[in-house]
Simulated assay, not measured.
Amino acid sequence: MRVICPHCLSVNNVPKKESYKKANCGKCKKSILDTKPIELSETTFDEVVVNSDIPVIVDFWAPWCGPCKMMGPNFEKSATKFPLKTLFVKVNTENEQNLGARFGIRSIPTLMVFKDGKEVHRVSGALDESNLSKLVNQFL
């Protein structure tokens, strides 16, 4: 399966397994098991979403948004639970207004789930850690 390196955004081919002890990027050699959310821009968004064989959960947020600040730690914590199962990414709508407009983001935070490069689900509003995990599990 194709997965994106969270450090250099290179596409890596990884055998599909139930769990992984070690998996390093073929380009930068850093661990692709590092599951911290990746900050995407208009130039990197399509490349990452289209080239990921695992579901991509996108958090559209802004630094001034109170609910976004509340959900941010839950989003980061949830990302650590699904290494090489789901890719967690963030889009700062303040800096990436074209992406927000392209996807019709009207309120933040908005979470979008992409599979095979296509949007399959969308939810607006802050989610707690439990509901984030339930959302992810729906698309595994």
Results as ranks from 00 to 15, higher is better:
1 M>A: 12
2 R>E: 15
4 I>F: 09
4 I>N: 07
5 C>Q: 15
6 P>L: 03
6 P>E: 03
6 P>S: 02
7 H>T: 07
7 H>N: 13
7 H>Q: 10
8 C>Q: 14
8 C>I: 15
10 S>P: 03
10 S>E: 14
12 N>M: 11
13 N>C: 08
13 N>L: 13
14 V>T: 10
16 K>A: 10
16 K>S: 09
17 K>M: 14
19 S>V: 04
20 Y>G: 00
24 N>V: 13
25 C>N: 03
26 G>L: 11
28 C>W: 00
30 K>A: 00
30 K>Y: 01
32 I>L: 03
35 T>W: 00
40 L>H: 00
47 E>A: 10
47 E>S: 13
48 V>L: 02
50 V>Q: 06
50 V>W: 01
50 V>E: 06
51 N>P: 04
52 S>F: 02
52 S>K: 02
54 I>Q: 04
54 I>E: 01
56 V>P: 03
57 I>Y: 02
59 D>C: 05
60 F>N: 08
61 W>I: 05
61 W>L: 06
62 A>N: 01
63 P>I: 11
64 W>S: 11
64 W>R: 11
65 C>F: 06
68 C>S: 12
70 M>K: 09
71 M>K: 02
71 M>V: 03
71 M>T: 04
73 P>R: 08
74 N>P: 00
77 K>C: 01
78 S>V: 14
79 A>W: 00
81 K>H: 07
82 F>G: 10
83 P>D: 03
85 K>D: 01
86 T>W: 01
87 L>N: 07
87 L>M: 13
90 K>W: 05
91 V>H: 04
91 V>D: 06
92 N>G: 03
92 N>S: 02
93 T>R: 11
94 E>Q: 13
95 N>C: 06
95 N>Q: 12
97 Q>K: 15
98 N>D: 08
98 N>M: 11
98 N>C: 04
100 G>A: 15
101 A>H: 08
101 A>R: 15
104 G>K: 13
104 G>F: 09
105 I>C: 06
105 I>V: 14
106 R>E: 15
106 R>G: 12
106 R>M: 15
108 I>P: 05
110 T>N: 14
110 T>R: 14
111 L>R: 08
112 M>D: 07
113 V>E: 12
115 K>H: 04
116 D>R: 13
117 G>P: 09
117 G>Q: 12
121 H>Q: 08
121 H>N: 14
122 R>N: 09
122 R>H: 09
126 A>R: 06
126 A>N: 10
127 L>V: 13
128 D>C: 07
129 E>Y: 12
129 E>Q: 08
132 L>C: 08
132 L>A: 08
133 S>E: 12
133 S>Q: 11
133 S>R: 13
134 K>V: 12
134 K>E: 13
135 L>I: 05
135 L>V: 05
137 N>H: 07
137 N>G: 10
140 L>S: 13
140 L>W: 04
140 L>I: 14
